[in-house]
Structures are given as structure tokens and as C-alpha cells.
Nucleic acid binder design. Structure first.
Lengths: 235, 235
DNA sequence: CATAATTTTTAGATATATCTAAAAATTATG
DNA sequence: CATAATTTTTAGATATATCTAAAAATTATG
């Protein structure tokens, strides 16, 4: 019993982490992506919906365990090891989302919460087999890229739909707003990932767009929508 | 924030439970099945590889939360609610095992640990869709029955291979020894679930069996093996 | 049935992850 | 640059799940 728990605690220090640590890693990774640099305590606390004091404590521990580089009051960032781990979590999350949508026929607006749980299941073999079973998908149901076994993944050249001019044509390639409300709304107005979109015209007054869908249908969307959609032009 | 955590704690009390509680429920369920009656502290502690003192504490809590009926020093058993929950966990475990073997091509000796993690993912919708995706399997890769959505499942009429007489014929329907070592050994000697087995003869000296497999091959197995295998006769 | 053996419980710790309230440190602003 | 605003940290709690050591209760045995 002594031996076992000692071993377990050793393993934990070096290569494994609790759900909590995984959630911190993921949140930090996402914040780094968004801000492009160091992350601060307050933003992380907000992202995780917990209190700053808790974050301070946890960051100290994660720093000791070499998941992050932490300088008191100066913000922090992932170490190489921390980044690798975070990318692994994202790989797992996105592969499970593909499974849920393509195999179990969930809607793209229903999978996030379940994937949040599945992503914590520890088994490299499992994830690599899942990847193979799904045909090595390059993106999840929301268009977000899936890292491969080595943590490599494509940076997309997608741009916000709101950047396009009237008359241009593009492919719906991703979203920046991942809320269920937004996803359901897109379902409702008949916009799906992969669709070709032509911009009929742009209303100067409120920057709303008239879009022509491949179904010939025309829809009007607000700037809130055009700022939530990523497209690939030159298609 | 206050509201949310209050809500969460309420939910926890009534219908949800932590991984730990789920593991206790599952272990208690299995012990009840094995012993056919009340379970005691020591057996549960052994099954969970933790100390009795810890079990005493946890049982008090689980009793308050109405998962078990607990009388000090007299053993305990699951309540209706506790049983229902335990059966749900077993359903999830076994469905995931089917997924791992039939879709991801894991060996039947490789899936237990991963299913131990997957079984804790909370989503009824997920499990029912998985059930449908797998074609509503009646048994897991080890022949153990899978409860349906309502917690119903067949009691098997399988008996130990060691109960059969020379000359009888039966179908390999399940196992009582779920250890990886045993499963791998069966793989090695070429015995697989569903196989038809004919008992050539029984060695009186050590109760070892000579089995004739459908492949015409003959193998000799020890009583350790015939006591680990369940068969359905009259086939 | 008295004593020994076993089982269960109590008492007091520990680790993890969280909280609140207040203090300290840092950054922004007139 | 002094003060205000914001951010971070400290200090002291709490809940969960575990431990060890010892006491208490129960069960088995001569």
C-alpha cells in the first residue's frame, strides 16, 4: 500500500495531472492564444470561474511542477512541457467532438460539455485508435484544427466574415464564437460549416450582411454573426 | 457564484455523485452479487484497496445520501436508488468495452482500465446513443450482460465449465475470472467467447480437462481455467 | 462463557482544491 | 508623483477523500 501510493504520487508529479490541472492548462493555453503573450491571474480566474486567491495557489504548484513559468505579479506562460500537455488535451477534446457528431449524430451545439468530460480520459492508445477510427480528421465539428499525434496542427488562414467586401465569395471554415446559442442560431438560419457563402451586399447603417447561400436562399445577418464566423476566401 | 455552487452542491446530494462514490457503488454492487446478501466494511475496503477507517466514514455519508442502508457493525446494502445508480455505471462500463473492442479493435484483455475511466462520463443521452450505435449489444466482450436503458438485464443460465461431465458440449459464454492474465492466456490457447467446446475427458488426478475445439484442435486446461469459464449447455 | 481474533469505529492527520476577507503590490490617472 | 484603482497575495476556513494508530465492538473458539 505504501509502495503503491508512493508510486502514484511520483507519477502525478512528473507526467500526469488531475482534472483540475488539466483544466488550468487548457484555459491557460486558450488565453495565450487569444492574447498572444503572458497570461494574468485575473483573466485565468475569470476563465475558470474561480477566485484569484485559488489561482495564485494553484499557479505556485503548477510552477513547481514545471507546467508553467511563473513570476510573481508578472504573469505566466506555459513551459514546453505544459504546452505539449495542453495540446494533447485539445486533441482529445476535438477528436471526441468529431466522434460525437459523426458517429453518434449529436448536433454540433450539443457536444462541448460531453467532450469536456471525455477529454480527461487517460490513454494515448485510445486516442490514437479513435483518431484512426475517425479517419484522421483535420478539424472538429466547429472547424477547429485537430493536433496530430505529435501535437502538430495547421494554422488556418481563415478570416472573419466581417472583413470581406460585398461580392466576394468564401467558404465557411470556422467560428470564433463557440456558444451554444450561436451554434443553434446558425443551424436555424441554415448556415453550416463548409458552405459556400457569397456576400450580396453590406448595409452601411449597421454593417449587416446579405448572404447568398448555395441553396440560392438569401439571408441577412447582423455584425454579431459576421464577427463570429471564419471563412476561407479564394475558393 | 454563491448561487451556482449552492445549486451544484444540491445536485450532488440528490442525483449525482463523485467518481469516488461511483466506485463505492460499483464495488458494493459487485460484492452483493458475489455474496448474495449484505456487504461488510472489510470486504469493501479490500475491493477498493483502501483502509477500513476510510470506508466507515464514506459509508456514513453514503447512508445519509440514501445510496445504501447502513446499520453500524451489521453490514450494509444498496437502496433502490443506489442499485439503480450502480446498474447505470455497469451499463456504461460494459457499453464502452463493446465500443473499444468492436470499433477500436482493442483486445478483450486491454479494455478494462479505459472503461473504468469512461464509465464516469455523465450523459444519459451519450450512453443511449452509444448503445444504438453499437446495435444494442446484450453482452460485453467478456460475456457479461449489459443492462438496458431501464436497468433491466438478463440473468444468464451459464454454469462453470468445471461442472460439466466428459462428453458434454457447450458454448463458451462468459468468465468468472476477469484478470488480464487469464484473458491473455485464453487468447494464447485459442479459446474465444462464443466458441463451441466439447469435453473430451477429465483427468481424475488434478481435474484437468481435455477440450476439443471447433478447430478440431485439442487442448488441456487446468481446473483453474475450467473454474474461470462459464458455458451454456444444451446447445 | 471468558479470552482471543477479527472487524469496525474513533480521533487526529494529511493533501487537494476551493472559499472569504483583508493586506500588499502593482498599475493607471489626474 | 501622489492617490486611486486594480491585481495579486496572504491568512485562515471549508469540503472531500484519504491515512495511521488506537480504542471499541463484535464474533469465534477452546
Amino acid at each position: 500500500m505504501f509502495c503503491l501510493s508512493y508510486l502514484v504520487s511520483c507519477l502525478k508529479r512528473n507526467s500526469m495531472h488531475s482534472f483540475t490541472e488539466e483544466n488550468y492548462l487548457k484555459a491557460i493555453y486558450k488565453l495565450e492564444e487569444k492574447t498572444g503573450g503572458r497570461v494574468n491571474n485575473t483573466d485565468l480566474a475569470k476563465a475558470l470561474a474561480i477566485h484569484s486567491a485559488t489561482v495564485t495557489d494553484m499557479l505556485k504548484k503548477m510552477s513547481e511542477r514545471k507546467w508553467i513559468l511563473y513570476e510573481k505579479s508578472k504573469g505566466f506562460k506555459l513551459t514546453g512541457k505544459g504546452r505539449k500537455s495542453a495540446v494533447g488535451i485539445i486533441r482529445r477534446h476535438r477528436l471526441w467532438e468529431v466522434f460525437l457528431v459523426s458517429k453518434l449524430e449529436f448536433g454540433w451545439d450539443e457536444v462541448h460539455e460531453i467532450a469536456e468530460q471525455l477529454e480527461h480520459v487517460q490513454s494515448e492508445d485510445l486516442i490514437n485508435r479513435l483518431d484512426s477510427f475517425l479517419g484522421y480528421p483535420k478539424a472538429d465539428p466547429h472547424g477547429d484544427p485537430i493536433p496530430d499525434e505529435n501535437g502538430e496542427f495547421m494554422k488556418s488562414e481563415a478570416v472573419l466574415l466581417s472583413k470581406l467586401k460585398a461580392g466576394s465569395k468564401a467558404r465557411f471554415a470556422g467560428i470564433t464564437d463557440h456558444s451554444t446559442a450561436f451554434l443553434s442560431y446558425l443551424d436555424k438560419i441554415g448556415l453550416a460549416l463548409g458552405d459556400t457563402i457569397k456576400i450580396g451586399s453590406i448595409e452601411e447603417f449597421d454593417q449587416s450582411y446579405i448572404l447568398q447561400l448555395k441553396s440560392k436562399k438569401e439571408i441577412i445577418v447582423s455584425s454579431r454573426v459576421t464577427n463570429g464566423i471564419l471563412v476561407v476566401i479564394n475558393y
